[in-house]
C-alpha cells in the first residue's frame, strides 16, 4: 500500500509538471503582454518593467525561473496588482471555492445516491419516473441557465434566498443548487442502473435467504457493490464541478478563485496564471488519487499492488 501511494505520488508530480509546462508555453503563445495596455509609458519604462519580471529573457530561461517558482511554491507578486502576491490571492480565494465545491459534491453525491436507490427499489413506479424526470432535466439544463432561473424565481420573485455573494449558509443554497444538479442527475441515473443490476445478483438472494432485514440487504449488500461505477465517474465529475465553480462564482458574485483565474488570463498576468493552474491541477490530481484509493477500499478484488502472489 505504501509503495503504491509513493508510486502514485511520483506520477502525480509528473502529471502536474506536464500540465504546468503546457500552460507555460500556451500562455506565452498568446499574443500580447501584461503591459500592452499601458500605451503612455515610454519605451524605457516598458523595458525596465519587462526586465524586472524577466520577460526580456529567452523563453527557456523564463521557463526555468518558472519551474523554480513552482518548486519553492513562491509565485511572487501579481503583475497587475503588485501589492498582492499570488499566494495571497490563492489564500483568500481558494477557501471559498473549496467550500462551494465540497458542499456541491456532498449534496450531489448524497442526493444522487438516495434518488437512484429509491428509483431502483420502486422500479417502474411513480418514484422511479419522478426521479428519472428530475435526472434528465438535471443533465440537460446547463448550470448557468439553472443559476439564472433560480435567481429569478427563488431570489427575485419569491425572495426566499439572497441572490448573490457569500456570507452565510443561506447564501450558499442557490449556487450549490445550481452547481450540484447536473452531477446529482448523473449520479442518480448511474446509481439506479447499477442498483437494478446488483439487485438481481445471486448474493442478494443469498442475503434474503438468510432472513436479513430489507434495509440491511440494500445498504450492506447491494449499495456497496452498486457504488463502484459511481466512484469511477466521481473523478470526472470533480473536474466538472471545479470548472463549473468559475462560472457559478461569476454569476453569484462569489469572491472565490474563479475571478482571478479568468482575469489573470485576460490580462496576461503570468504569475497568477501559473500559480492558479499549478495549484488547481495539483488539487484535481490529488482528488483523483483519493477516488482511486476509495475504489480499492470498496472492492477488495482491486489490488493496489501486485504482491501477495495470488
Amino acid at each position: 500500500m505504501t509503495k503504491y501511494i509513493i508510486k502514485r505520488f511520483l506520477i502525480m508530480i509528473g502529471t502536474v509538471l506536464i500540465i504546468a509546462t503546457l500552460t507555460f508555453f500556451l500562455m506565452h503563445a498568446i499574443p500580447g503582454s501584461p503591459f500592452n495596455e499601458e500605451r503612455n509609458s515610454n519605451e524605457v519604462v516598458q523595458a525596465n518593467l519587462e526586465a524586472h519580471y524577466h520577460l526580456n529573457e529567452p523563453l527557456f530561461i523564463q521557463y526555468l525561473i518558472y519551474l523554480k517558482s513552482i518548486a519553492t511554491l513562491d509565485f511572487g507578486p501579481s503583475i497587475k496588482h503588485p501589492t498582492q502576491t499570488v499566494n495571497d490571492l490563492l489564500g483568500r480565494g481558494f477557501p471559498i471555492s473549496f467550500e462551494l465545491g465540497i458542499v456541491t459534491i456532498l449534496v450531489a453525491v448524497i442526493s444522487g445516491i438516495i434518488l437512484g436507490v429509491l428509483a431502483a427499489l420502486k422500479h417502474n413506479g411513480i418514484i422511479d419516473y419522478l426521479a428519472m424526470t428530475i435526472a434528465v432535466l438535471g443533465i440537460s439544463i446547463p448550470n448557468f441557465v439553472l443559476a439564472t432561473l433560480l435567481i429569478q424565481k427563488l431570489a427575485v420573485d419569491w425572495d426566499i434566498f439572497p441572490a448573490a455573494t457569500w456570507s452565510s449558509p443561506l447564501h450558499m443554497v442557490l449556487p450549490t443548487l445550481a452547481l450540484a444538479t447536473g452531477p446529482m442527475a448523473i449520479i442518480a441515473r448511474l446509481t439506479r442502473s447499477s442498483m437494478l443490476e446488483v439487485l438481481t445478483q445471486d448474493y442478494i438472494k443469498t442475503a434474503r435467504a438468510k432472513g436479513l432485514m430489507p434495509y440491511k440487504i440494500i445498504i450492506k449488500h447491494a449499495l456497496k457493490n452498486a457504488l463502484m461505477p459511481v466512484v469511477t465517474i466521481l473523478g470526472t465529475l470533480l473536474a466538472g464541478i471545479l470548472t463549473g465553480t468559475f462560472v457559478i462564482e461569476k454569476i453569484f458574485a462569489i469572491p472565490g478563485m474563479g475571478r482571478y483565474f479568468i482575469e489573470s488570463i485576460n490580462q496576461r498576468d503570468y504569475p497568477v496564471i501559473m500559480g492558479t493552474t499549478v495549484f488547481y491541477s495539483f488539487f484535481l490530481v490529488f482528488m483523483l488519487f483519493l477516488v482511486d484509493i476509495a475504489y480499492g477500499l470498496l472492492d477488495p478484488r482491486i489490488k493496489m499492488h501486485k504482491k501477495e502472489g495470488e
Binding site: D202, Y203, K205, T206, A209, G211, K220, N225, D299, P300
Partner: peptide
C-alpha cells in the same frame, strides 16, 4: 417469514461463484 429464513429453513444456491458477496469478508 424472515424469522424462519436462515433459522429454521436455509437455502443453498447453485453457483458458489456468485452466491457470495464479493465486497464483504
Amino acid at each position: 417469514m424472515r424469522k424462519i429464513r436462515g433459522v429454521d429453513i436455509s437455502m443453498i444456491f447453485q453457483d458458489p461463484m456468485t452466491a457470495l458477496n464479493p465486497t464483504l469478508t
